[in-house]
Write a protein that binds this DNA or RNA. Structure first.
Lengths: 255, 255
DNA sequence: GGGGGCGTTCCAATTTTTGGAATGATAATC
DNA sequence: GATTATCATTCCAAAAATTGGAACGCCCCC
């Protein structure tokens, strides 16, 4: 997947840890071996190494592998160090309260867009996206915003890679997407309607670092039946305010 | 440190991530290279690999390495999956409220005792221990409790390894510690007074899994001037209640 | 404009990881 | 209680990955 100076073991570690999700908290050796297509002996050795460091642990009850205590420590540290999440959370909460829609915080990572924080809409019918979910960078408001502010050559590389259709309105033509990204940079926000999921819309604005780089996007998304022309404009305004507020906090956060 | 089928890259990963702490959130390549005594070229390649997965990131401002977003995701998942922390937190909070002293949740891991959760005493003068702190298993109430319930051969191995003196009352004689551990198993709790830090005392009780294994310890600790014979007995009772409550919750937690 | 610090790249030597096959352990079935 | 599956664990020669010294490039400061 990478042309980087990949260290295979790190890739493997990520594969293993990423096998755990909110829907899947335990794996037996055999299951995981099949899931990742790694021979059991190899995987077994590897899992023991992870266990020795508390990265994984075996549930004494069913002898399945679970996440250990160490990811907890790392996560807590990371949360303390990255001002972003900490700062963003309260802002996201009030944005969700004001709008009644789901609020998403996303970052661009290596050809993908990852959701790193969310606050759910109180409505039963809402956009539900788990923290950790990855999306291609060309579809959806948050994705497009993040893509729009990448370095030009990286944008071109992504365009070269192809633009698979995910939903009815996914932009699949490179030139159309180039123009859309230019429009986003000009307007300072992105809008999407059924680009990734049927019946869903979204808006998103960039979050700027104190150094003037786009480091994340804050997005608002929901079902189309709760959307109207006016509410979109309103939502864009609120989203932009939230993004600005977060950016401003970041200036104070670090040193 | 291990006789396990160690995978070197995993050891290295843990070394690198453990270099980050609440007191140290950023490292330059050179600093980290010296800190860990790894050649720069090797470390550089490795850090790039971690960056490619979002495990680390470079702060655009000072170009130092920081923890990335991915540990956050892992930490969040681990928190959801391990009933322990989630269940223990409210119990710990009320224990801290009742006693006014710092409450610690610890686990045994590979020859060390690690603090995985804490609730601070409201007093200005209090025992302050960061989550993630490691301690040797022979000194301090929580440590002794966890050691007491290890398999006999593991206890012996730890005794063989030596019992360095950490403070005035550290038990450094193997036979004395054997007897102390037996007493702890009999009484069901551990007490310590200036075994790890001057002016500090602690009590701790084991937390049992539904499978009848000791999986963690809950401890209470503070400055000696706020301690008395009676309060200790009281604290032991409260600690034990808290541990039992947590154990009981655990039965319900998993499936 | 040259010295020093820091980050990055390269590649042959070296070390680690690999994984098929054999062996234990445990649960399920007859 | 013997027999058969299923899953976990160990072993070691072959294969693949990592290593790290050395050289290069960049930027800042004197």
């Amino acid at each position: 997947m990478e042309d980087n100076p990949a260290v295979k073991t790190v890739n493997r570690l990520v594969e293993v840890l990423d096998s755990f999700s909110s829907r899947r908290s335990g794996w037996s050796l055999t299951e995981l071996s099949e899931h990742l297509d790694i021979p059991k002996s190899t995987l077994h050795r590897f899992l023991l190494a992870l266990e020795a460091h508390g990265i994984l642990q075996r549930d004494p009850k069913d002898r399945r592998w679970r996440l250990g205590y160490r990811p907890l420590l790392w996560g807590r540290l990371a949360a303390n160090h990255s001002g972003l999440q900490v700062v963003a959370r309260p802002v996201m909460e009030s944005l969700a309260a004001e709008t009644g829609e789901t609020v998403l915080l996303t970052v661009y990572q290596n050809g993908e867009v990852v959701c790193i924080e969310k606050v759910d809409s109180p409505h039963a019918i809402r956009l539900a996206m788990d923290v950790g979910t990855r999306r291609p960078p060309h579809a959806g408001a948050s994705s497009k915003v993040l893509m729009a502010y990448l370095p030009p050559d990286e944008i071109e590389a992504l365009l070269q890679r192809g633009l698979p259709r995910l939903c009815t309105n996914t932009i699949t033509d490179p030139q159309a997407l180039r123009e859309e990204l230019a429009r986003i940079r000009e307007q300072g926000y992105a809008f999407s309607m059924e680009e990734t999921d049927l019946g869903a819309w979204g808006v998103a604005t960039p979050i700027w670092s104190p150094q003037g780089e786009v480091i994340a996007a804050i997005g608002l998304a929901g079902p189309t039946f709760r959307m109207s022309e006016e509410s979109v404009q309103q939502y864009v305004r609120l989203c932009r305010q939230a993004a600005e507020q977060i950016s401003r906090f970041l200036i104070f956060a670090h040193s």
